[in-house]
Simulated scan of single mutants.
Amino acid sequence: MTLSTEGASAQQQYVFTEDGFTQGTVKNGKIARRTTIRAERYVPTIWIDPDGCEHWVMDDGFEGFMTPHVTRQGIPVCRRGNTCAVMNSDQLFATNQASINGANKKRLQEFFKSAGATAYAIEGHTDSRASDAHNLNLSQRRAQAVAQVARSVGARVVSTRGYGERVPKASNASTKGQAANRRVEIQCIR
Rank of each mutant, 00 (worst) to 15 (best):
K27R: 15
T25G: 03
Q144I: 07
R107D: 02
E110H: 02
R41A: 09
A179I: 04
N28S: 14
Q109I: 01
Q23D: 03
N181E: 02
A8N: 13
V157P: 02
M87L: 14
S114M: 11
Y120P: 00
G61Y: 05
S4T: 15
L138H: 03
L138V: 07
N135E: 08
T22V: 15
G20H: 12
Q178H: 01
I75G: 02
G74I: 10
A130W: 01
C78Y: 10
D60W: 14
V157W: 11
N88P: 06
N137H: 12
R161M: 11
A173F: 10
G154D: 01
Q23R: 13
A145G: 08
I37Q: 08
I189G: 00
A32W: 08
K169W: 08
N101K: 09
M1F: 10
V167P: 00
E54N: 12
S128C: 03
H69S: 12
E165D: 14
Q97D: 10
Y14E: 04
A98T: 06
C188H: 10
T36I: 08
A117K: 15
D90E: 14
F21R: 06
V184P: 01
H134V: 12
S171W: 07
A173L: 12
P44W: 10
S131W: 01
F16H: 15
R80S: 04
Q23T: 06
Q23Y: 11
V146R: 09
A180F: 06
G20K: 13
A119S: 13
K105E: 15
A150R: 02
R38D: 05
I122G: 03
V146T: 09
T5C: 13
R72H: 11
G24S: 14
I100E: 09
T95P: 05
A121G: 10
G116F: 15
L108W: 05
R182L: 02
E63G: 09
R38F: 01
R183F: 03
A117I: 06
T160F: 00
G154W: 01
Q187N: 09
R41C: 02
N28R: 10
R79M: 04
A121C: 03
G177H: 04
V149P: 03
R79S: 03
A98G: 07
G74M: 08
I122V: 06
G74R: 08
V184L: 07
S171Y: 11
R141K: 15
A10N: 07
R183Q: 04
G164K: 04
D59P: 04
F112R: 01
P44S: 13
F21M: 09
A145V: 05
R107E: 04
S152P: 04
S99F: 08
I189Y: 05
N82V: 03
W47P: 05
A8M: 12
E63C: 12
T5R: 12
T126A: 03
V77G: 04
F65V: 00
Y163M: 04
A98C: 07
M58N: 14
C78I: 12
H69K: 15
V167F: 02
M66I: 10
I37C: 01
G20Y: 11
